[in-house]
């Protein structure tokens, strides 16, 4: 229950700051600051690694290999990030397992709010990637709803390619950036 109030406070902060940010202005230039990001980013688990295939030329839905040493392997709830193939919003079998586990947890804990953040790698245009992140977040949202999470408890947001986890310019970096973060 404590967690519920924390989330409410974070959401409330976001709304408050939004109102403030929109009105601030100084001599032709406008300043906007997102003070909630620090809080939300520390919750993100980035240790889960998807590696292997160069999905550029593979068909959507191909199985990606998961690092077997990952300590979170046995507990899908410990994984807060699911990864996607290039230009795809289809969930891999591993991602499906993680998403379903979170869906079951959330549907049995009504009142909890969840934010699904969709992201893309840097290939392709920024606007296309914003749409792709939207579609990825929505793919996770649809499974959540199908498994009984209240639609009102889910918010989706896409950052496209604007918030990469890895700054590299190869498949190992791109595979970490094509993701949905499950934040609650």
């Amino acid at each position: 229950m404590q967690r519920f109030w924390t989330i409410l406070l974070v959401l409330f902060l976001g709304v408050t700051l939004a109102g403030c940010a929109a009105s601030k202005k100084k001599g032709g230039t406008v300043e906007v600051e997102d003070a909630t990001i620090g809080g939300s980013e520390t919750e993100v688990t980035t240790e889960a690694t998807a590696s292997g295939v160069d999905s550029d030329d593979t068909t959507a839905g191909e199985i990606i290999t998961i690092d077997q040493d990952d300590a979170d392997m046995d507990d899908p709830l410990g994984q807060r990030v699911v990864y996607f193939d290039f230009d795809s919003s289809n969930l891999t079998p591993e991602a499906q397992r993680v998403v379903e586990a979170h869906a079951q947890y959330l549907s049995s804990n009504p009142g909890m709010a969840v934010v699904l953040e969709g992201h893309a790698d840097e290939r392709g245009t920024r606007e296309y990637n914003l749409a792709l992140g939207e579609r990825r977040a929505n793919a996770v949202s649809e499974i959540f709803q199908a498994l009984g999470v209240a639609p009102d408890a889910i918010r989706t947001i896409s950052y496209g390619e604007e918030r990469p986890i890895s700054m590299g310019q190869d498949e190992s970096a791109w595979s970490l950036n094509r993701r949905v973060e499950i934040l609650y």
Binding site: V10, L11, G14, L17, A18, G27, S40, R155, I157, S158
Partner: peptide
């Protein structure tokens, strides 16, 4: 242009008058 008003809302299109700096979604 496209921006975000906070870390929890999605992208929106904003309009800004470049001489006065006034802006709104």
């Amino acid at each position: 242009y496209v921006s975000f008003s906070d870390g929890r809302s999605g992208a929106n299109v904003w309009l800004q008058d470049i001489s006065t700096g006034t802006r709104r979604p």
